[in-house]
Design a binder for these strands. Structure first.
Length: 419
DNA sequence: TCTGGGGTCCTAGGGCGA
DNA sequence: TCTGTCGCCCTAGGACCC
């Protein structure tokens, strides 16, 4: 049996843990720059769609007294780690699928009443972290996802735990689930399927393998088999990332290359730090710039370039240098730039670098970077910077409504007033 | 004024050597 | 020497996830 554990309205629940006044009230969380809505509490869902631009919904927020928060990823990341930590005590095999979801595998649990075990897990997580979760059990990952949806949709009947453990339940679940809600069937495919008259997950499983493979590739075929109850998706071990991206929209349009250079340098430095954390070096960088595609009155420009490095590197200095070489090649004067990014690609393990005959990473950088990382760890993230970065940090992400970092920043720990 | 960010996997198609 | 075919590798683009 596999269980999918999913935190209910995770970001909103994290905010509620430290602010219980929010319980029962509509809450939304905004993306970086307070751009769009990226999470909603159940109470907010009828009024605000996912991804809604915040500025267009100002009236709605006021009208329904919706509480708004800027995203606070330091808090969510830390709360997630706490939840995952507890989950890992219930089964030796855990796959952390995302910030708020994990698969647990239960092998050799045939003498355990898994439904009761699920209730126990739920209670433990709720009590220890304050985060409510839902649990779906089934023989395959895709069916566990379906079971989880049922647990979430019918909390009173299921008590937040549902198990697909018979053919009858499997069929009933699939005949209930709209095809667009199936894990792995996104907007494009569901549109195609609906056109064909396929409305429920069950009908999807009745399509021929030929049709599914032809139209949805082997990914679709694997999904179909999973829904039929045949495991096709293994539990996955944690892997090192294959790409590392740092991209941002800017708070204002940039027209001058110097400003962009500073931002691209900072993005490259962040990528380098992430690379060093997973002990990898990259062999190429992709740099892109983008105008604001919402502003029709301005001429649009989107360009990216892959800069191949002459040697594998994870030095902030070298990555910043190469990223700027790329930027200079794609920058065109006269556009209003709204977004840029740096993506590190083609990794090799740090310990496994083949020396190049002509040019190699500067060996001094390794020591320098280790010192920088150590200092930044001790005195606070991004305190030590390259001179080419904006030392005064004149740019600032709009985060007008961010809650305190209760669990990761000593100066922001919750205070209790005894009166 | 104001519209996110960070990933993965798969396929098609082109270049290239055997 | 020329041409066709096959397989491998790479890349761009499209789909998906949270």
């Amino acid at each position: 049996m596999i269980a999918l554990i999913d935190c209910n309205n995770f970001y909103a629940s994290c905010e509620r843990v430290f602010n219980p006044d929010l319980n029962g009230k509509p809450v939304v969380i905004l993306s970086n720059n307070d751009g769009c809505v990226i999470a909603r509490s159940n109470e907010a869902k009828p009024f605000v769609p996912m991804g809604a631009p915040a500025f267009q919904y100002k009236e709605v927020f006021i009208q329904h007294d919706i509480k708004i928060f800027s995203s606070n990823f330091a808090l969510y990341g830390d709360m997630s780690a706490r939840v995952m930590n507890i989950l890992s005590t219930f089964s030796p095999k855990i796959e952390i699928y995302s910030i708020d979801e994990a698969f647990l595998q239960f092998e050799g649990f045939q003498y355990t009443n898994l439904y009761n075990y699920g209730l126990e897990i739920k209670q433990k997580v709720q009590k220890s972290t304050g985060i409510p979760i839902s649990i779906g059990f089934a023989e395959t990952k895709a069916l566990a996802k379906v079971a989880n949806k049922i647990a979430k949709k019918f909390p009173t009947e299921t008590k937040g735990v549902y198990m697909i453990d018979s053919e009858e339940k499997r069929l009933k679940a699939l005949k209930w689930l709209p095809v667009e809600d199936v894990w792995g069937i996104g907007r494009k495919f569901s549109k195609k399927l609906l056109k064909l008259g396929v409305q429920r997950a069950f009908q999807f499983t009745q399509l021929s393998d030929y049709w599914v493979k032809k139209n949805m590739s082997v990914v679709g075929l694997r999904l179909k088999r999973e829904l039929l109850g045949e495991p096709n998706l293994e539990m996955e071990e944690p892997r090192k990332k294959q790409n590392i991206a740092t991209t941002r929209s800017f708070e204002k349009d940039y027209t001058n290359i110097e400003e962009l250079k500073e931002r691209v340098t900072t993005f490259a430095v962040t990528c380098a730090e992430k690379l060093r954390k997973q002990k990898s070096c990259c062999n190429a960088l992709l740099v892109f710039v983008h105008t604001n595609f919402h502003k029709n009155q301005h001429q649009q420009y989107f360009k990216n370039i892959v800069v191949k490095l002459p040697f594998p590197s994870n030095s902030s200095i070298e990555l910043a240098r190469f990223a700027n070489v790329g930027l200079e090649k794609i920058f065109v004067q006269g556009f209003h730039y709204k977004k840029a990014g740096v993506i590190a690609m083609n990794f090799t393990p740090e310990a496994n670098i083949q020396l190049n005959f002509f040019e190699n990473s500067n060996p001094k950088h390794k020591l320098l970077m280790a010192a920088m990382d150590k200092l930044n760890n001790e005195i606070g993230q991004h305190k030590i910077k390259l001179a080419s970065q904006d030392l005064d940090r004149t740019w600032k992400m709009r985060q007008e409504k961010r809650s305190p970092r209760y669990t990761t920043k000593l100066s922001e720990v919750i205070t209790v007033n005894a009166t």
